[in-house]
Design a binder for these strands. Structure first.
Length: 550
RNA sequence: UGGGGCGUGGCCAAGUGGUUAAGGCACCGGACUUUGACUCCGGCAUCGCAGGUUCGAAUCCUGCCGCCCCAGCCA
């Protein structure tokens, strides 16, 4: 996989220092999604970071499902996530579930209780909230905080046995109710979820460990050296360290936080993406307009382009919003290099070449790539009647318009030059057909003594193949759809995010396989849709266009 | 008004006291061109603000200002 190299970042520097100082002799990372939804481009940033770092330093990276909340999770998501990670080009060293550690986690909780570092609390959720205090006022200690070790042990065992109802009790860490960091105010370690059926452990458990307790221990059990997570967990780091400092942990991974990805013209939160799907604004999680990995894949993005994008945006602690242009540039660069060129007319306008013999068909050849002969060529069919795009003709225009005008001459890409002699209109004045003449001496060489205005693409009317083409644009019409506090993000949906046209494509495209990508010359990059039986092409991205208009 | 973070060109981002302040995207010129693409050449910042330390500061100190995160028995 030829790819742009990975720039350094503060996390890689930490790793290099740890390797240089001998703190670690090999590095081990992990990508720890909760299987409660589909992965999106933001997850890709984390995946590329974690797996990329492991790859570059000859280390390993695990895929671990953080499945401690049975209410929200489902097996469907674990399969989808595995597929997405693989598709991005990575293979995990180990595949784990936090639920694999439930028994060990339980024993570590017992250890905490025995050390007097955890207690069973009978406060209700609402009471806990009251006792917690506020950002500026310290909290109060739970009246159950000083139960004996024996009583705590007994109660915790009975929690596990299923003796108590959901919400009746929790196991809490005994830290400091006056801590300025809210996470240290005796956080919950275990809660009761009796009715739940866990996708991995079934009904084996009715108490479930919290993230803050599970994560550091899972990391330690797997020998993770650097536990990379996003900025919102910065405040949890003291708790992460507290847990490992107070149990007999095999090692103490270092948690390092980086900024999550924000992308313009889209939303990234699971909640909002779910709304887009459930409210019918898109067709599903893999709708080509979605920022999900599945959506990008169906749109036609390549794994390499997404990896490249993640490397281009870097890894820091400052949270910014990346322009769509960066993602688009990454896929354009990749596809420019590898996508075969084809011709497709998106808004067909009939052209009759009056001096071309009726019934005659000619086989022409077009290179698959203008700069890479090794990609070969494909056959084109030329005939008396062809289609060109309506946007490539104007009855009159100034010199800057490098397309066809009445009386003007243009080159038909990979074929002859034509001059428009006559415009045929219907009763309402709409242009329905152009009558042109061609110059038989211009195949593969320029006409003598004159210069054509430009080059336009075309497809034989006789041999062209009908196809549906879906022109995708950004999902939202403003850069930060969720930036407005008192307006729902749905207000900013782009009504033109999808335009479907009935196009005519060159014959060779009839053989395109689902997932095949092409450049439709002068239009953009397209990918044959993988979810349609018919010949449907999704526009991945337009070509860069430096033309001001005119 | 508690705590934790962040502030380098339009966007992302290198930079770790001595460099003309990398690079990418975008943008603006120009060359090339059977894709208004690609490619190629050129242009495009004094580092949130104000003080201070130093021969020398984006890099150190102080004080402001702005933005983000935290009061789930979510992750």
């Amino acid at each position: 996989m030829s790819e742009n190299s990975t720039p350094t970042n503060f996390i890689r520097q930490i790793i290099e220092d740890d390797l240089a100082s001998g703190k670690h002799s090999r590095i081990h990372t992990r990508f720890p999604p909760e299987p409660n939804g589909y992965l999106h481009i933001g997850h890709a940033k984390s995946i590329v970071l974690n797996f990329g770092v492991a790859e570059d330093y000859q280390g390993q990276c695990n895929l671990r499902f953080d499945d401690t909340n049975p209410h929200k999770e489902d097996e469907e998501y674990v399969e989808a996530i595995k597929e997405d990670v693989r598709w991005l080009g990575y293979e995990w060293a180990g595949l784990y579930f936090a639920s694999d550690y439930f028994e060990q986690l339980y024993q570590f909780a017992v250890e905490l209780i025995e050390k007097g570092k955890a207690f069973v609390c009978d406060l209700s959720a609402e009471e806990v909230r009251e006792y917690r205090g506020t950002l500026t006022e310290p909290g109060r200690e739970s009246p159950w905080r000083n139960r004996s070790v024996e009583e705590n042990l007994d109660l915790f065992r009975r929690m596990r046995e299923g003796e108590f109802e959901d919400g009746a009790r929790t196991l809490r860490a005994k830290i400091d109710m006056a801590a300025p960091n809210m996470n240290m105010r005796d956080p919950a370690l275990y809660r009761i979820r009796r009715g739940a059926v866990h996708h991995q452990t079934g009904d084996a458990w009715c108490i479930y460990p919290m993230y803050d307790f599970t994560h550091p221990i899972s990391d330690a059990l797997e020998g993770i050296t650097h536990s990379l997570c996003t900025l919102e967990f910065e405040d949890h780091r003291p708790l992460y360290d507290w847990v490992l400092d107070n149990i007999s942990a095999p090692c103490h991974p270092r948690q390092i936080e980086f900024a999550r990805l924000n992308l313009e013209y889209t939303v990234m939160s699971k909640r909002k993406l779910t709304q887009l799907v459930n409210e019918g604004h898109v067709e599903g999680w893999d709708d080509p307009r979605m920022p999900t990995i599945a959506g990008l894949r169906r749109r036609g993005y390549t794994p390499a382009s997404i990896r490249d994008f993640c490397n281009r945006i870097g890894v820091t602690k400052s949270d910014g919003t990346v322009e769509m242009g960066v993602l688009e540039a990454a896929i354009r660069e990749d596809l420019d290099r590898r996508a075969p060129r084809r011709m497709a007319v998106l808004h067909p306008l009939k052209v009759v070449i009056t001096n071309y013999p009726e019934g005659q068909e000619e086989r022409l050849s077009g290179p698959n790539h203008p700069k890479d002969e090794t990609m070969g060529s494909r056959e084109l069919v030329f005939s008396r009647e062809i289609w060109i795009d309506r946007a490539d003709f104007r009855e009159q225009a100034n010199k800057k318009y490098k397309r066809l005008i009445t009386g003007g001459e243009v080159r038909l890409r990979n074929a002859y030059t034509i001059i428009c002699e006559e415009v045929v209109k219907d009763d309402e004045g709409n242009i329905v057909e152009l009558r042109c003449t061609y110059d038989p001496d211009t195949l593969g060489r320029n006409p003598e003594g004159r210069k054509v205005r430009g080059v336009i693409h075309w497809v034989s009317a006789a041999a062209g193949v009908p196809a549906e083409v879906r022109l995708y644009d950004r999902l939202f019409s403003v850069p930060a759809p969720d930036g407005e506090k008192d307006r729902p993000f749905q207000d900013f949906l782009n009504p033109d995010s999808l335009k479907t046209v009935q196009a005519v494509v060159e014959p060779s495209l009839a053989q395109a396989e689902p997932g095949d990508r092409f450049q439709f010359e002068r239009e953009g990059y397209f990918c044959r849709d993988t979810a349609s039986k018919e010949l449907v092409f999704n526009r991945v991205v337009t070509l860069r266009d430096s033309w001001g208009g005119g």
